[in-house]
Simulated assay, not measured.
Amino acid sequence: MTLAETIRVELGGRSYDVIVGAGLLDQIADLAGPFLKSYATRPVPIVADVNARDHHGPRIEASLAKAGFEAVWYDVPSGEASKSWSGLEKLTDWLLSLGVTRSDHVFALGGGVVGDLVGFACAILKRGCGFVQLPTTLLSQVDSSVGGKTAINTAAGKNMIGAFHQPSLVLADMDTLTTLPDREMRAGYAEVIKYGLLGDREFFDWLEANGAQVLTRAHKPLQHAIATSIRAKARIVSEDERETSGARALLNLGHTFGHALEAETGFSDRLLHGEAVALGMVLAARFSARRGEISRDDAARAAQAIGTTGLPSQINQLGLTCDGARLVDHMRHDKKMEGTGTLPFLLLKGLGEAYMARDVALDDVAEFLDEELA
């Protein structure tokens, strides 16, 4: 079996390790030892997706018990609805009732919803305490658990209230993916292929040849895909932690189109986030081809690499009843909207070469979407 890999996210005094491998939760007491010391006489708070706790809680409890620690659990219902003001209030009240201090670390077990919620709670609890990410989905392992973006959703939109708050450690245990439904696995794969499309043509080519093995959870290809994705994100986050220079914005490839589709489908299970990003990347590639920036063959190749995995690659597959103008209206609420009334778009100059376009007319986007919806 391939040995675990450690990837360092270099952020000066906020640097941390991301460990990728199998069986990591069985070793949590050793791997996260420095972040457990403050709990010598108190239970360790673990906030968990209810399904993740059912599957993986016993492994964590066994490791902690062997080292003399006890876990205390806070269950979070699955789904985006948990990332709310009320969800945040209940969680922070629970943490305060436990007497969590600024020197403590809270553990987050689950996908992106739990990681975002716990990260934001820890960012504001007593003006900031530590947390450890234990991502249990492919999407959270390669994307949301790394980089420090934390948030909740509001009536105004997704992730509108949040903070940058880096974890102290991320343990990406590949064994957690064995219980992941195939649909969730594909949704996470969208974020994997994103790293190839936005800046690594060689990785994109590798995924074309090996993507099927990644999705069937073959150990060596899966670990390579996860570690390569995390290294790419770590480099970008190290360069542009708070998305001020433009480098980190590249990670939003597919997200502007994707968030509009999520909004139109009510941020529901009708369209998972990864599925929306996948289709958003296809639309970004096709829109880039429409502008003459990449060839239509390259746009078709991107769509095929996504579509052959079972991810959506045609907007008319969704059965939407809206028009392009309505989708563009959703985009106007995007948190990346600038004060000038313009919205930057991540587009492609080639496979593996994304860039930020600031000259995109939203009327042109609406017309393009009408064509795609037809």
Rank of each mutant, 00 (worst) to 15 (best):
T150E: 08
Q213P: 00
H259V: 13
K149R: 09
A225G: 06
H165S: 05
A249S: 13
N153Y: 02
L139D: 04
G157A: 11
H259M: 10
T244C: 11
T154V: 14
L177E: 12
A232T: 15
E241S: 11
Q223A: 08
P221M: 08
E243L: 05
H255E: 10
L180D: 06
R235I: 11
A151G: 08
L169D: 00
R248L: 08
E191N: 02
L253P: 05
D240L: 13
D182N: 07
A151N: 13
Q166K: 10
A260M: 02
E239N: 08
F204K: 07
R235W: 02
R231H: 14
M174V: 12
A187L: 07
M185Y: 00
V192M: 10
T179W: 08
D143E: 12
D175S: 08
L180A: 04
L222Y: 04
V214L: 11
A172R: 10
D200R: 14
G188H: 14
Y189S: 01
K149E: 03
A260Q: 04
L222P: 02
A225D: 08
L215C: 09
R183V: 01
M185P: 00
V170W: 02
V192Y: 03
N153K: 03
G128S: 09
Y189K: 00
L251G: 05
K194P: 07
A151M: 09
G147D: 01
P181Q: 03
L251N: 02
V146K: 02
A172F: 12
P221L: 03
R186Q: 11
T178C: 09
G196T: 13
G199V: 05
S245A: 14
Q166C: 05
D240F: 14
A234F: 05
L198S: 00
D182E: 12
Q223G: 09
A249T: 14
L138A: 05
P135V: 10
L171N: 06
I152K: 02
S229H: 08
L134H: 01
A232M: 14
L197H: 06
R235A: 15
I236N: 01
R127K: 10
T179Q: 10
E241M: 09
K233R: 02
L125P: 00
W206C: 09
L177G: 13
P181Y: 05
R235Q: 14
N252C: 14
R217G: 02
S145E: 01
R242S: 09
R217L: 15
N159S: 03
L139R: 00
G199Q: 05
H219S: 10
D143P: 08
R231Y: 11
E241D: 13
N159H: 00
A155G: 08
G199F: 05
F204Q: 03
T136H: 05
W206R: 00
D182Y: 06
T154L: 15
A249N: 07
Q213V: 00
S145C: 03
P167Y: 13
A249P: 00
R127F: 09
Q223P: 06
A163D: 11
G211T: 10
H165W: 15
Q213C: 12
Q213N: 13
E241R: 07
A172E: 04
N153W: 01
G196E: 13
D205F: 01
T150F: 06
Q141C: 04
